[in-house]
């Protein structure tokens, strides 16, 4: 018997009810007793110390880590059963995105790859989609780096490229794991304002950050995690 009713899904982009998740080979769950409801259009900031389960929670929402117990609905679809479909409407910025110097991928293609899951067999990018790619690069201030290999950019520049890739997908749900970590203070404010703008355009955002010194203007809730559980949900 599933706990989540269909009516709930019209209002909420993400619903987690009593969710547990354990990594393969581990005995102790990395997250436990997670109950969280996020409305469409909300901007949620998840924070907490290292090992609190923040990244695990994001991976569970996307179905990258299968829950061992509990019910998850994302954009009205069940996780993990319909995870692949859900992921096509989401964008994810992982924590470990850094490319090494020798990686042979040009910036413009890294962003264009964001549209790969929406393409059929033998289908390439149209001229208008390339325009979207360049628009995303421009928005995150890395248009002039389009022809350069990503591995030769600084951490902050690479982070902007990955954010541009997330944006070009026009997601309904944007999931960000420490998206400001490699940026200097000025760039953190700039990117955080951009995220607020994206949220104002109707995109639901879940962002993990251990640093709460800069909270995006549009942020609605602060979720504090510790030892794999949600300790507090505070409205901002």
């Amino acid at each position: 018997m599933k706990l989540v009713s269909i009516d709930v899904t019209r209002e909420y982009a993400v619903v987690l009810e009593n969710v547990y998740a354990t990594y393969v080979g581990e005995n102790k769950p990395a997250i436990r007793k997670i109950n969280l409801k996020i409305r469409y259009g909300d901007f949620v900031l998840i924070t907490g110390p290292n090992g609190a389960g923040k990244t695990t929670l994001l991976e569970t929402i996307l179905g990258l880590l299968k829950p061992t117990a509990g019910d998850i609905l994302v954009l009205g679809l069940r996780i993990p059963e319909e995870a692949r479909l859900v992921r096509r409407y989401c964008s994810y910025v992982p924590q470990d995105f850094m490319s090494s110097v020798s990686e042979p991928f040009l910036v413009k293609y890294v962003v264009a790859m964001g549209l790969a899951s929406k393409k059929g067999v033998f289908e390439g990018l149209s001229a208008s989609e390339w325009e979207e790619v360049y628009k995303a690069l421009r928005m995150f201030g890395v248009e002039d780096l389009a022809e350069r290999p990503i591995g030769k950019l600084s951490g902050g520049q690479q982070q902007r490229v990955i954010l541009a890739r997330a944006f070009v997908r026009r997601p309904r749900l944007l999931i960000l794991d420490e998206p400001l970590s490699y940026l200097d203070k000025e760039a953190k404010v700039e990117v955080s304002d951009l995220l607020s703008k994206i949220n104002r355009d109707g995109v639901t955002i879940i962002m993990v950050s251990h640093d709460t010194s800069i909270i995006p203007e549009e942020c609605d809730f602060l979720v504090f995690m510790e030892e794999g559980t949600i300790k507090e949900v505070r409205e901002i």
Binding site: R87, S91, Y92, P94, F105, V110, A116, R169
Partner: peptide
């Protein structure tokens, strides 16, 4: 190309 670049990111994007 997406899989060759970053498998985890490609998986998270539904590839």
């Amino acid at each position: 190309l997406a899989v060759l670049y970053n498998q985890k990111l490609a998986e998270a994007e539904g590839i």
